[in-house]
Design a protein around this nucleic acid. Structure first.
Lengths: 152, 152
DNA sequence: CCGGATTACCTTGCGCACGATGTAATCGTG
DNA sequence: CACGATTACATCGTGCGCAAGGTAATCCGG
């Protein structure tokens, strides 16, 4: 039988390596904008719909507060967004883009196509890859946090 | 036209999310062995062929010394491997498994199949995913470190 | 309306990842 | 053989990513 330790390495390691290779590709592009890849993801969320609570940003990106809190603080320090308590519920912090944060979208206009080109996949492959990754993510998530015997 | 910032998010973010979901699945399994996922990857390399210089481990995993040096130090502190200068070339450090490091392979025997099951992909999908990810990684790498105008 | 549970967020600690910098050993060239 | 370049590795600083523990605001059952 083939070595299970090698077989296993293939899917998960391929994923791990590909993910890092992609962020490597983003790095120089985003560096010119003073952004990291996770910071760029937060801006993508906010460019899509501004003034959202931290909780929603976390749900969109599958990131927890331990990651987001300091990240958002850095973006605030860089003048790209503001943090404000919601008067109706003082627990929730609403994140809003500043004018500088909004205008950064224009400067980032070339990023998506540059990345799309760097990945070197045609439309069919891209769609299929996304579909497979989505199902894989859902399947893995159902195992990690619950699986058979999850109790809410 | 569709929003490029949304379109772009799909491939790269799907990859980013899937990669983290998979390591989430590994975490409890490897936690019982006292390992993290990158540490597990290093052991996979060494289980395949022991007594390798740090350089080769880095090439296999696409990791640099800044990541590997402290990681290997932790594995050494945990008694899983040893580090020794090569007499023939005092610059290179050879990493060798201890008896405990070798025996951990037996305790990890159930990990690959458990992960394979959690991913929920059939053999065809798995093969195709790996193939796509490999080409994507290669394409991205050729852009990041070189691309058109790389000068050695 | 009161007290316990829940919610939203923050902080701390640890372990990657990566860029930048440093050091010692070796190689290569004149 | 000298000496500049290269190689192999280590260290430091920054920024994720996640677990664990903390706080204040809100909700909810009695």
């Amino acid at each position: 039988m083939p070595d299970e330790f090698l077989l296993d390495e293939q899917t998960c390691f391929a994923l791990y390596a590909a993910s890092r290779a992609v962020t490597d590709t983003y790095r120089p592009l985003l560096g010119e904008l003073g952004l990291t890849y996770p910071q760029y993801l937060v801006l993508l969320v906010l460019w899509e719909s501004d003034a959202r609570p931290v909780k929603e940003i976390g749900e969109a990106l599958h990131l927890d507060y331990g990651t987001l809190s300091p990240l958002l603080k850095r973006l605030e320090a860089n003048g790209l967004l503001t943090r404000a308590r919601l008067p109706a519920d003082e627990r929730t912090v609403v994140i809003s883009l500043t004018e500088e944060g909004r205008s950064l979208r224009t400067r980032a206009a070339g990023v998506p196509s540059a990345i799309g080109c760097a990945l070197g996949l045609d439309d069919t492959e891209r769609r299929q890859l996304i579909d497979t990754l989505r199902r894989l993510t859902a399947s893995a998530a159902s195992y990690s946090s619950g699986g058979f015997d999850a109790q809410p």
